[in-house]
Design a protein around this nucleic acid. Structure first.
Length: 317
RNA sequence: CGCGGGGUGGAGCAGUCUGGUAGCUCGUUGGGCUCAUAACCCAAAGGUCGGGGGUUCGAAUCCCCCCCCCGCAA
């Protein structure tokens, strides 16, 4: 079966790899985002999908925009795919494009649809403290992740999981499910099922603001935020009147309690595991790993020793 | 040529502007105190200050080159 693949970041790599490894499929072409100047020094940087595709000698296309692009449409027709697969491509496809393949175009989405439609389903699930998520394979339609679902697989979210970790797990689960699904779909065993649109929820793209910690929240909420914003954008807070910008990479919910009159953000105790910070409602969170801007990640203990942190100092101001 | 921060005993930092062979917290080792302790007290070990070159009587500190790490921005 001929396949055209559309994807860009690391999350899409396992799916492409699975298709390339499978005997039943022939990847005729790969669409991915153009190389961007990115990173320190603004060097050109290839999308991960491009690197993998070029390793296998697959034809690569990097149109700036697919919408309204006759050349891209002609290319798609020329490749004569039986099916197209989209995994975190980063562009909205026009109808005349995704309907070119005989079997249409399917998408791998990292949530149990219709929950968390949109750009960052994994992060939002962790942010909300969910213990269950999954991957869905659905048909692309005009809406945002609103197409008919072909298959889903549930995946538990461990209590300590970070977004980066779940992304890795879901990428490989998605790849596995993708292969089974398009095989089943192509022979007619799997039928598309319409989503319950009334139940849809949305996962908007992250901004840097989502990483700013408000200590006036429950410890559990901040704990989830710290996991969800790892590895990007990280959870940050200011310190010592804004002279220091502190990122918090790892915390544990010690179940500790702080006096309810303590101002949120106050470092109420320090021991050889980290520092206990008071949060809303008398809850507290143990900070274990931090990073000062311009420096590497260090343990909270090293931070305390190096910067002469004392109890009573307040984070977030 | 995107902006910026940093590389100092095992760890994390100060000292660099205003040159004079290095300091803090923690850790390590030994000893003491204690019923006892990741607590407390005393002592010790441990650094060619990222690398190279230059200026100087003298460079962690000033000048030039290189390597590595990180934050922002994308």
């Amino acid at each position: 079966m001929n396949v055209v693949f559309l994807g860009t970041p690391q999350f899409a790599v396992p799916s492409l790899q699975a298709l390339l490894n499978s005997d039943g499929f022939s990847v005729n072409g790969v669409f991915t985002q153009p190389d961007r100047r990115a990173g320190r020094g603004k060097k050109f940087c290839c999308p991960p999908v491009k690197l993998l595709a070029s390793e296998y000698g697959v034809e690569i296309f990097q149109p700036e925009k697919i919408r309204g692009n006759e050349e891209a449409l002609d290319t798609m027709r020329r490749l004569q795919p039986d099916i197209a697969v989209v995994v975190a491509f980063g562009q909205i496809l026009p109808e005349e494009f995704y309907t070119v393949p005989r079997l249409g175009t399917v998408n791998v989405h990292a949530s149990l649809l219709p929950a968390y439609r949109g750009a960052s389903p994994i992060v939002r699930a962790i942010l909300n403290g969910d213990s269950l998520t999954g991957v869905s394979i659905m048909k692309i339609d005009k809406g945002m992740d609103s197409g008919d679902v072909l298959s889903m697989k549930e995946v538990p979210i461990p209590y300590t999981a970070t977004a980066g970790y779940m992304e890795m797990i879901l990428a490989s689960e998605g790849a596995e499910l993708l292969l089974d699904t398009i095989v089943g779909y192509s022979v007619g065993i799997i039928k598309p099922i319409e989503q319950d649109h009334d139940q849809a929820t949305y996962a908007p793209k992250l901004t840097r603001r989502d990483g700013i910690i408000s200590w006036d929240s429950q410890a559990s909420e901040i704990y989830n935020q710290i996991r969800a914003m790892n590895p990007w954008p990280g959870s940050s807070t200011s310190f010592r009147g804004g002279k220091m910008e502190l990122k918090i990479w790892r915390s544990t919910e010690s179940g500790g309690e702080s006096a309810s009159w303590t101002r949120p953000g106050t470092i109420c105790s320090i021991d050889n595991e980290g520092m206990e910070v008071s949060c809303a409602g008398g809850t507290s969170l143990k900070i274990r790993e931090v990073q000062l801007s311009g420096r590497s990640r260090i343990s909270a203990v090293d931070f305390v020793n190096g910067c002469a942190v004392t109890t009573g100092e307040v984070l977030g101001e």
